[in-house]
Design a protein around this nucleic acid. Structure first.
Lengths: 197, 197
DNA sequence: ATCCCCATACATACTGGTTGGTATGGTATT
DNA sequence: AATACCATACCAACCAGTATGTATGGGGAT
């Protein structure tokens, strides 16, 4: 019976290294060092570097996205608009300084890999679609409840909110500054307020 | 007398390759092939791959940013809010399909390199600051003219606009879709309209 | 005008190191 | 005994960078 401990440590090490260096620049030897195993272990569990990268997306980044950004929108008890605002606030505040400097891992991979590898692109796109749908549904719910303006298109608005969020992360990453993230996040929250109706 | 034709072709080839693959994954040999020269030429004009990357930012990306995104804000004759909207519209429409798929070259480099190389980070940050200031000044001008709301902070708002713009580019890049860019851009323009006052 | 001098502007060939990937072998578990 | 699990050793390909060679053209001396 296997607990796949080695596999999990490989995934974690790969995630860390990819988050720091990007996928292409992430060295397998560096990952192996960090995980404390050797090439034999790696190629026992994964057929190639690319499949390791796919697994990081499927088994590491996706769960994080679900639990801290999507599920609070689905399962939350607050009114829709407040639920959106609190999810964004909490998600941002939960970020450590290092995570701000390194940026959103999903966005990083999407930006780096989507033009050059279809497998990565499909995965990142699927995650964005799920995220988008959770925001869009929350907006729709607010519209039926009557406390979100009726004249906005939920999908377009959700797309814009998502873009603004990722943009804030990008700005903060480049400025290497939590303050930039806070200022930019304030803009997002102000925009959300403008959706009340 | 030298027209630095070789140097310019190296810069252009490096820009293209970096735009497609990213800086780290851009192969010098691929750049040399594309430019039609050899290593001797490259290392005659640039001391290292990194300095070539810096030069691409300084001499290729910066001019593009200035002429199509910043100077229209400074020299434009439209009223401030319309000037912002038209600059954004025109800048977006000028993008070819390939450029949408490959994303904003400034954002690409910023995302990839800012956590791991201070030289890149300083350059991309300086460009973002210049961009930010041009937007911020346009907002201020609108406030003094009275057709932009007085209760918004120009710098914070400019930061949010910039984040939203870069976010739209990111979303469109990952979706590989001009339609996504258009929908998302609509959100930006709507937001800008909400600043009128 | 012509010779030399030498810097500029590249091309060619090569280096040590790293890359992702493989082949093989051993060991523990079932 | 067979399979899962993983370490070691090795590979060709590629990497950025360097050492060296060479063609060219302009400037000064004659």
């Amino acid at each position: 019976m296997s607990l796949d401990k080695t596999r999990r440590e490989l995934l974690q090490a790969a995630y860390t290294e990819m988050h720091l260096q990007g996928f292409q620049a992430a060295s397998l030897n560096a990952i192996l060092n960090k995980a404390g195993v050797t090439k034999g272990a790696l190629y026992h569990y994964f057929r190639s570097k690319k499949e390791l990268g796919y697994a990081v997306l499927d088994e590491w980044i996706q769960p994080y996205l679900m639990t801290t950004w999507i599920e609070p929108l689905i399962n939350g008890t607050l009114p829709p608009l407040e639920r959106l605002k609190s999810t964004i606030s909490q998600g941002s505040e939960a970020l450590g300084d290092k995570e701000i400097q390194l940026g959103c891992p999903l966005n990083n991979l999407a930006q780096e890999m989507s033009p050059i590898d279809e497998g990565f692109r499909q995965r990142t796109d699927a995650l964005y679609q799920a995220w988008l749908e959770s925001i869009s549904n929350t907006l729709k719910e607010g519209q039926t409840l009557g406390n979100i303006r009726q004249d906005i298109d939920p999908r377009d608005t959700a797309l814009f909110i998502l873009a603004a969020l990722e943009g804030c992360m990008s700005i903060a990453k480049n400025a290497q500054s939590r303050e930039a993230l806070v200022h930019c996040g304030k803009g997002v929250l102000n925009y959300l307020d403008s959706l009340a109706g």
